[in-house]
Design a protein around this nucleic acid. Structure first.
Lengths: 329, 329
DNA sequence: TTGAAAGCGATACCAT
DNA sequence: ATGGTATCGCTTTCAA
């Protein structure tokens, strides 16, 4: 059997109540007693049963986290940030991977919401209506999506896109391709929207190549279309797709950046590890995770203040060798 | 406030005990009563508080999962498998990232163990003694580590290494380098051990280059040492390190595989996405996760049968363009 | 400063 | 077939 508060109390010759106080409100206990209790806590390896605590405090000390696909390196990055911040605040994390499936996501939300104080939904695929209904009865934070007044952490995609397009036009590119992600995805809609704006501002031609799965294979599949589109530079929905483009260009002997420049979005570590290294609009992934937890904790501390909290994180263009001067044909 | 069993009982005009039975053991309740209870359950949207249930049944319906570093693509692969299998069995997953820190790991184990029915420790960094003590009072499964009779899922590193060395010798390599991972790591010890055996069997020279962090930077750092060692092929601790080697070789203009062949271990998706694609000893990551959950469920179902369950998964050499004939000097 | 006791929500045993 | 009650581990009044 595991060691409980009673075991510690008996060992230290005090009551369970005192043990509890020694740990949570030491100022209410004689220093000497508190020290003795702590000694036995350490000795017996006691740590409180959070479920039992939650029963009485109404707080579980757990946060739920749902991601669409852990295989996309973007999400582990976010998860690491969430983990780190949650641990600092002494919260444990329930993690679920929805496999990009909106229905599975909704189901997971329902299951998890019972055991957590709040949920963080990363790039959720669910419908707005479902999301609103969830937000109605559980504290939730959206990450990389915005729906109504639900608290959310997003990225400054406009700023990032501006940097990217400015960079490309400075290099002489006048005709830029866009390889989109899943049509239903919020960030895809967001990204193409800002890109249209920015392209118009900059006076460059924007060629929308189409939508692909947000995976390496998606990039592979799009590469030939990109070439056929006659652009000198291409921006991809995310880094993984951009890596697919790079790979296929390489396989076909198309020089990057000599023939075509490639820009990704996300700033995953892998972007720097390929040849040529990928220019990318970097999203601070761990920082976004931390921000998500911060928002959630804030929401938990002050539940009245429903749905105002917002956080938009800066983005930075990381210029690497996959972009270069436009070919002078 | 959330709806509790009492609310349902009051509404249905029965005792909480009856509600409980109607839901978990309907055969002990008059059909009519059970139906009525279920109607109110649905109407009020009641669902039992799993924490409270766990307190008395001793079963939480949760599994804990601790990984050293989610940023290493190997672990998300494993986690996906665990998630999938756990969901099938109606278990939720607590995930914690220890940041490669043995002390943090031990702490997380202690915290999580209270809220879960069992734990899966992926490539744990803790000492054997700590691991044994943990195994004493919580059902745990080790993944990618073996300690005493603690149930474990491992990979057939011997078989994998044999395939790799056979492949390299067939290509004419007679002098092979090894870039090791963290000295303290079990899999590093395991891998160098089997590699020594296999190299001796095959009659090739094995040059141990040293130990590096199991990251891209580690591979970068080792690359020049590898060249100085005068080997024609090198096997790295894992794929991420191998990618580092590849990158540095490329930067220095060293042809792969013309000048040197490179083999990784893990079979992460990225290995296929670089140029040249990386030959690697592939470990079935999701399968190992699933196997881990299976073992754990088995252990939970039959706790007496302590510490016998073992599972060693096959490994496969994926031959790609990073390996080729030994240069004829 | 400390202890006794009530109670969080659910379950399981013992009565009826 | 159903209800009362003790209990899980912990926190929190209320007294002392």
């Amino acid at each position: 059997m595991r060691v409980t508060i009673k075991d510690v109390a008996r060992a230290a010759g005090v009551s369970p109540a005192t043990v509890c106080r020694a740990l949570s409100t030491p100022e209410l206990v004689r220093t000497e007693t508190a020290d003795r209790v702590r000694r036995f806590v350490a000795e017996l390896g006691y740590s409180p049963n959070r479920a039992a605590r939650g029963l009485i405090t109404g707080r579980t000390g757990n946060l739920g986290l749902i991601v669409p696909d852990l295989a996309n390196p973007f999400f582990p990055g976010v998860v690491k940030g969430i983990q780190a911040r949650a641990r600092e605040a002494d919260y444990a994390i329930f993690l679920a991977d929805s496999d990009e499936d909106a229905a599975a996501e909704a189901h997971l939300v329902r299951v998890l919401s019972k055991q957590v104080d709040g949920l963080i939904l990363c790039s959720p695929r669910m419908s707005e209506a479902d999301l609103r209904s969830v937000a109605g009865d559980t504290p939730i934070i959206l990450l990389n999506r915005r729906v109504g007044r639900i608290p959310a952490v997003t990225f400054d995609s406009l700023g990032g896109m501006r940097q990217a397009v400015a960079h490309l036009t400075a290099l002489g590119h006048r005709r830029i391709g866009w390889v989109g992600g899943p049509r239903g995805s919020w960030s895809n809609r967001d990204r193409i929207r800002v890109l249209r704006t920015v392209a118009a501002e900059a006076g460059v031609d924007l060629v929308e190549i189409g939508s692909v799965q947000p995976r390496f294979a998606g990039g592979i599949a799009a590469a030939d279309l990109v070439l056929a589109a006659g652009v000198t530079a291409v921006i991809a929905y995310n880094d993984v797709v951009a890596l697919g483009l790079l790979s296929r260009f390489n396989a076909r002997g198309i020089g990057v950046p000599e023939r075509i420049s490639v820009v990704g979005i996300d700033g995953i570590a892998m972007a720097e590890m390929v040849h040529p290294p990928l220019t990318t609009i970097s999203l601070a992934m761990p920082a976004s995770g931390r921000a998500g937890v911060d928002l959630l904790l804030q929401l938990l501390a002050d539940p009245e203040r429903h749905g105002c909290a917002r956080r938009e994180l800066e983005t930075h263009l990381l210029v690497r060798a996959s972009t270069g001067p436009a070919p002078t044909s």
